[in-house]
């Protein structure tokens, strides 16, 4: 095992002190590879905390540039980053927090053609995407590749989060086998989002990923944690695996990633609107 440097011992001291983490756990984090899909509201706290925690390699997928309307909640980016590619702005912020971390920007849109290749190099995937097509693409690709996936969504004052362990629990399609009809679920552009909600839910995703990498505690596998920020209350919904799930069921009908644009046009004739624009 490589020895920690003096500055690493100091930087990670509060982790190492934890009985359940120690130097062994911190080394695991430094050797881990996590892919974050999106560089928006949910991905911001995920990226910040995973970088601060010393997750050694972090990929960020995002094809957008930083917009002024993002800055109310997307705390990876600053006013000086307006117009810059989000994955580059995210890289700069995360590597600035912790030079131990190598951030790999993937400035692209995930499609059925590239998703399996993009996730292949990572141990865990975090879905911080702002739209249903990417959400289903991430779920299907992770199930097909057997990769753990942290899933979350936010809207207005609410959020939900779950951890998908393919082969060991339900997937997103066990909850919602098909995307909703276009226009049924409003986007953050239409419905709004309290910025701090992204922070709460994204921070839960970050903690779940760290627990997963460290092999600690009970994950949100088979459980959907639902948060209501107006009541300031959490509740947990048991999430059973569906034997007839189209992707993780006993006789799956989905055996390859489905291109999301194609997929949504097939379903509704138009491209789906995002539930959230995190």
């Amino acid at each position: 095992m490589t020895r920690f440097t003096e500055s690493q011992i100091e930087r990670y001291s509060r982790h190492i002190i934890l009985q359940e983490v120690g130097g062994i756990g911190q080394r695991k984090l430094l050797d881990s590879r996590v892919l974050i899909i999106g560089a928006g509201g949910l991905s911001s706290p995920v990226g910040l905390y995973l970088a601060a925690a010393g997750v050694g390699t972090i990929g960020i997928v995002d094809s957008d540039t930083v917009d002024l309307s993002n800055l109310q909640r997307q705390i990876l980016h600053t006013t000086a980053d307006l117009g810059r590619p989000k994955c580059l702005s995210a890289q700069e912020t995360m590597e600035g927090i912790n030079p131990d971390v190598s951030v790999i920007p993937h400035q692209l849109r995930l499609t059925s053609a590239n998703v399996l290749d993009v996730i292949a190099d990572y141990d865990v995937v975090v879905d911080g995407a702002d739209n249903f097509p990417t959400r289903y693409l991430a779920n299907d690709a992770c199930v097909l590749s057997g990769k753990p996936l942290s899933h979350a969504g936010i809207l207005r004052f609410e959020g939900h989060v779950t951890t998908i362990l393919p082969g060991r629990g339900p997937c997103y399609r066990c909850l919602y086998p098909e995307p909703p009809p276009p226009g049924l679920v409003p986007s953050c552009q239409e419905a709004g989002i309290l910025g701090a909600i992204a922070g709460i839910i994204g921070s839960i995703q970050a903690a779940e990923v760290l627990k997963l990498l460290l092999g600690l505690g009970e994950l949100l596998a088979g459980r959907l944690l639902v948060f209501d920020g107006l009541d300031m209350a959490f509740r947990t919904i048991e999430l059973p695996r569906r034997p007839d799930c189209p992707v993780c069921g006993d006789r799956p009908t989905i055996t390859a990633p489905i291109d999301y644009e194609e997929f949504c046009r097939l379903r509704g004739g138009t491209t789906l609107q995002s539930e959230v624009h995190p």
Binding site: M1, F4, E10, S13, I16, I17, G22, G23
Partner: peptide
């Protein structure tokens, strides 16, 4: 403190 304990703990792990 607590760096003295952190360094002790790292040595104990070995």
């Amino acid at each position: 403190c607590p760096l003295n304990w952190v360094k002790t703990k790292l040595r104990l792990e070995e």
